[in-house]
Design a protein around this nucleic acid. Structure first.
Lengths: 248, 248
DNA sequence: TTGCCGCCTTGATGCAGATCAAATGGGATT
DNA sequence: AATCCCATTTGATCTGCATCAAGGCGGCAA
């Protein structure tokens, strides 16, 4: 069910709030006009699948609002999330026409899609698009490598603390810059999605969240809303040495 | 101990056997001459550290011969390998001047280094270098995501089978193309390095290798040399649905 | 030849997290 | 208000891998 909104198709990229972070960050007015020609918007409801692994990729895209995930699945059903895409993140790979992962909408999602072939042609004549995409891809690779450390070597408790810290800090960076004091934000993932992110079962996720709550590392209002009284304490629990490590 | 070889500094990139896979794959004669100006070779012995995490990066580089690893370490000493670099692979990140990981030589290693600033300037005026690097980085990201599935969801036995398959197929692709029948090759990693790669302990690595041997999935000549009688059988043990998934 | 040193293998035991199972609770529908 | 649905929590038990602890083996130096 592709809920393409007519309204979005009149949307002007030049005014888009996430444009300065997206793949077209450095495009000038003429280039944005070219992009208008090949772009269209698509909306998805929370839980819908955007692309199945193995599908033909007709487009590449930027996330405009909402959260998408990349997931790999083994034959017997074991699942591992391998990407968490936030507004301004890029989806798809120029030069490849089959999707290597399932892409799903975790929340309601709007994507700005560019028809793949014309986009690839535009990349060739517009080098700074490749350069911007290279930057973004290198950032994703760094995030993937942090994630590998988490998956390979952290305990369940550390994994949960890391995830809360990642989401909390991203949230903080999007909102009040330099804001101090307790962080408060929503976890945009179900327990099951967190488990797929962390390489755990949903029961273990639930138990460890309860444990961190019991120990005063986090507070919960309902199941999704979190307050972190001390970010330092949380980072200590996460086992992070670096304090970089934003995701994606 | 930087064993820079004078002989290598007269090496001509245009004749380099790995050039067609490296970052300079599409460079023309004039561009190669420019690269000659900013390049130098460095050699390392097996076990040496090339760069420590946090060090200033004076250069970016291509691996010419040998194998290098990227490793992250937590304060308490837990280690996770996050990259395995083979001949033609690229090291370093344009636009960043601190190394985010330890880089080490797993075997004797020769790298072709480019001074970072001039290389970055050259990237700006030579778009196809960015484009090539983008391709290579996207490939690495795909490899990292396969690796995440391995770390998060595979059993110890599957992890070992996956690693043997990855190394064996890379080896096969470098040597006799389209070669059929039993694969035979060396594992270029110690048991400990395999453990760091797979998120296991070295004891578990050793036990699982013994188990695969006992079950006839692999044969061993000494500790390092492996024969795989049936690649299909090995892939089955690895739990791979895809048969893509080369590393790096 | 002998002994030493690193790497590797194998054994015994413990525990973190998976699995199986049931209960709870909040939001939506009627 | 009553009911259903489904995400989540909690409990009981099991197991795969880590941990702790001895050997074994091959290469190298004396």
């Amino acid at each position: 069910m592709d809920l393409t909104h007519a309204a979005f198709n009149e949307h002007d990229c030049g005014n888009c709030p996430i444009r300065h972070r997206a793949v077209c960050a450095r495009c000038d007015a003429a280039e944005l006009r070219d992009l208008e020609q090949i772009k269209y918007y698509r909306s998805f409801e929370a839980g819908q699948t955007v692309i199945w692994s193995g599908d033909q990729m007709e487009f590449v895209a930027s996330v405009v609002t909402g959260i998408a995930t990349l997931t790999q699945t083994m034959e017997d059903g074991r699942r591992q999330m391998v990407g968490l895409l936030l507004p301004s993140d890029f989806v798809g790979r120029p030069g490849r026409d089959r999707a290597p992962y399932d892409v799903s909408a975790t929340t309601d999602l709007v994507m700005c899609c560019f028809r793949r072939k014309p986009f690839e042609e535009m990349m060739i004549r517009t080098p700074h698009i490749s350069q911007r995409l290279l930057q973004m891809t290198l950032d994703e690779l760094d995030a993937a490598r942090e994630w590998m450390l988490l998956l390979g070597r952290k305990t369940a408790r550390e994994k949960i603390a890391s995830l809360v810290a990642i989401i909390g800090r991203r949230d903080a960076s999007l909102h009040i810059r330099g804001h101090k004091g307790p962080l408060t934000f929503d976890l945009p993932l179900t327990r099951e999605a967190m488990a797929d992110y962390l390489g755990l079962t949903l029961e273990t996720v639930s138990r460890q969240i309860s444990a961190l709550k019991r120990d005063g590392v986090i507070e919960l209002q309902g199941k999704r809303h979190v307050t972190v009284p001390s970010l330092d304490r949380l980072l200590e629990e996460a086992g992070d040495d670096t304090d970089g490590g934003f995701l994606n």
